[in-house]
Design a protein around this nucleic acid. Sequence first.
DNA 1: CTAATCACG
DNA 2: GACGTACGTGATTAGC
Length: 934
Amino acid sequence: MSFGKGCHLHLIDGSAFIFRAYHALPPLTRKSDGLPIGAVSGFCNMLQRYIDGNSASNDAPTHVAVIFDKGSHTFRNDLYDQYKANRDAMPEELRPQIPLTRRATEAFNIACKELEGFEADDIIATLSCQAREAGGRVTIVSSDKDLMQLVGGGVEMFDAMKNRRIDAEGVEEKFGVGPDRVVDVQALAGDSVDNVPGAPGIGIKTAALLINEFGSLENLLDRAEDIKQPKRRQTLIEKREQIKLSKKLVQLDCDTPLDFTLDDLEVRDPDPETLLRFLAEMEFRTLSKRIADALDAEAPVIPDTNPAGADPIDTAPDWPAIDPEAYEHVSTPAALAAWVERITARGYVAVDTETTSLNEMQARLVGISLAVEPGQACYIPIAHRDGASDDLFSSEALAEGQLPFDDVLAALKPVLENDAILKIGQNMKYDAKIFARHDITVAPFDDTMLMSYALNAGIHGHGMDTLSERYLSHTPIPIKTLLGSGKSAITFDQVPVTEAVKYAAEDADITLRLWQTFKPQLHREKVTTVYETLERPLSPVLARMERNGIKVDRETLSRMSGKFAQKMAQLEDEIHELAGRKFNVGSPKQLGEILFDEMGLEGGKKGKTGAYATGADVLEDLATEHDLPARVLDWRALSKLKSTYTDALQDHIDPDTGRVHTSYVQTGANTGRLASTDPNLQNIPVRSEEGRRIREAFVAEPGNVLVSLDYSQIELRILAHVADLPAMKQAFKEGQDIHAMTASEMFDVPIDEMTPDIRRQAKAINFGVIYGISGFGLARNLRIPRSEAQGFIDRYFERFPGIKTYMDDTVGFAKEHGFVQTLFGRKIHTPEISAKGPRAGFAKRAAINAPIQGTAADIIRRAMVRMPDAIQGQPAKMLLQVHDELIFEVSEDATDKLIETAREVMEGAALPAVKVDVPLIVDAGQGANWAQAH
DNA sequence: CTAATCACG
DNA sequence: GACGTACGTGATTAGC
């Protein structure tokens, strides 16, 4: 077929694929000889995923090519010798992989094109132009902004990572001008990554403004004299030649001399033999298996030629494909007994429960699935309802093919509680809570979600779908296909048993395979201790706390809601009065229009989306001159308290227990902290007087009190330890006011002459350091000039020289290893640490903060794990954790003892593994409600 | 479904 | 005058 109308050309930016693959994956090596192969592996996976994604679409390409750069010297270097001169050299491990990715492309039978002396971008430009002229469509698979000038007239881009198309509108969003003027804007703004000079002092925003005003770069340069701003005018006149050069550098070449035509790029099916031979040579076991399946060919045998001691990679064992049709539906006592026997003989089993709700307090158990080896899984339905009948009265009837509920639990209880049988789950906390309600204690257990968290925090999420896709190359049956979504969604007990078997047993099968995948990795990555001391034992502790819940007094909340509603209505009237018309106070968009368009206040700044910013900081500035923003701030404060707390919290009171049962997500925060959801009890107000009163609704049962114990300044203490700051350590040892001490050091003010304001500034700096301080951030926080903030930071580094060393060392470690570590060995991966552009700054600060925040998180985890045994026998229950605080409910005559015990556990939690150089101090409080206890 | 806003440590 | 910035979270609302 000759390329023309109706044809669709896909152009893949090969270099972008390679770099993404390289940075996204750990450094894999080929098993037989240690050849670095991670990028090739990622590249092949991305290519395969891309092909899969397209074959399913009805907009599949008719022509496709992967385009590579070739040679480091291009015509742009002749124009400007500094072009791309500030690029880092290619990493050593990546270099040998480049030719392999070309071979991979050819093995997939996809056209692979490059041209000496030209960048891939120019080839892509030329082909796009040719395709457009021929009347066809083009999709450029890349998110590189340098290619955005090509968009339009049937040419679009596709960001394969974000799975997002970029059309002319998307380009305009990014550059503020249409694709046809992108080059002009780039010429003015320059590009630090490619080292295109542009016009100094002009960025994308200003450039877009100028181009939109003058229509084109040429017109702008010709009429530069007309520009009002003196600085800008001068720059444009003086740097005229530099700007024109920049345009030449960013302008892609549509006339590269290609030695092939569009017709040569026609989509071709891969030759299974060629492709599989290549994959076998690379020793990609999982991928070759998957591709062999897809091509209906035999997977190649890859000999295990691992020389002694070398780390195995990609050890996809010889597993059968995941096949939902092959699972067993257990419906007879004999079949159940047979499974119990197999499990007992095997010594481990993957377990998963199906229930009617995600809320474990209300969920009813519907069925249980089990797996003993890959491909061998079953589902035992026990409470599916009979959906066949529409009869109103029989809708409660049970479906056919199910064993009696109690019989099944009675048969499984000895298995689930058997010390000699390991139970394997994905997020076992959920299943354990369900079983606990039927008086079954699941132990011992392993949890694949927690294993993944110990191994991969910072790299990817830990949900089963993510893990299955990533490690098993398999997309599990989406629950939506069974339950539907939205209003018409059904519960699992209404799912037909035959469908449930496929879904449920698949989950158990996947869980088992993940366990076998992760098990050897824990050891290899040296995170077994983290998993075994900080993750696995915490899960049952959290389950217990969640089941305990905390009593919340509905009356108190309801009364407060009423009061808030009244005050809000009053404020709303006043606001409308001041605005001169009615509008939705809760709409930032409408508020922005009122403030900046209608009332004409100064300082309106539009964000990326074109909306005015109306955040608290903006309104606070405006509040000094006008009443309206001040009223809006008051209204917002009340609105937040009412909607998020006094109203919403009432809906979370469990009708059976009268208590609120939060859910802790153990793998939610990369640093090791917990997250609390449904409801979030880790952000109950405390900073404002009005908000703090909400804590009065959190109460103890009659005869009991709430006790709160919290670590004092734990993160600063850890900082003093890890950064080795003698002055700060000394201050903590002497029990001094640490912020006052810092202020004294920094500003040479004696402690006894300290003013609250100086102390406040020092406190902000102390926190700033923990967050990976920047002059900009500190300036904004303290509302002082940036230069002054920078002065503070310089001085801090001078007075506490350990800080700078710590920061540099931490970032250096992250760059070398791709992760940072807590004092207890928890790894937090930092894949973006070597990124270019603004993301680098983000990653750096996160890397600096993670060991501090993470070590604090580890310490309280250790305390929590030890707590149940320590307080065993005392009339006390642990209810909540708020990062550095634990909340207990205790019989009122036993509080002193509880405080003594819990404090001892918390203060000694780092020991014996780590001896922190400063004492860890725990403050305690108690009272009838949380407000008093805190 | 995303962005804006704001609650916590 | 911006590449862009304090770290880590979750819930609610508006508005596409």
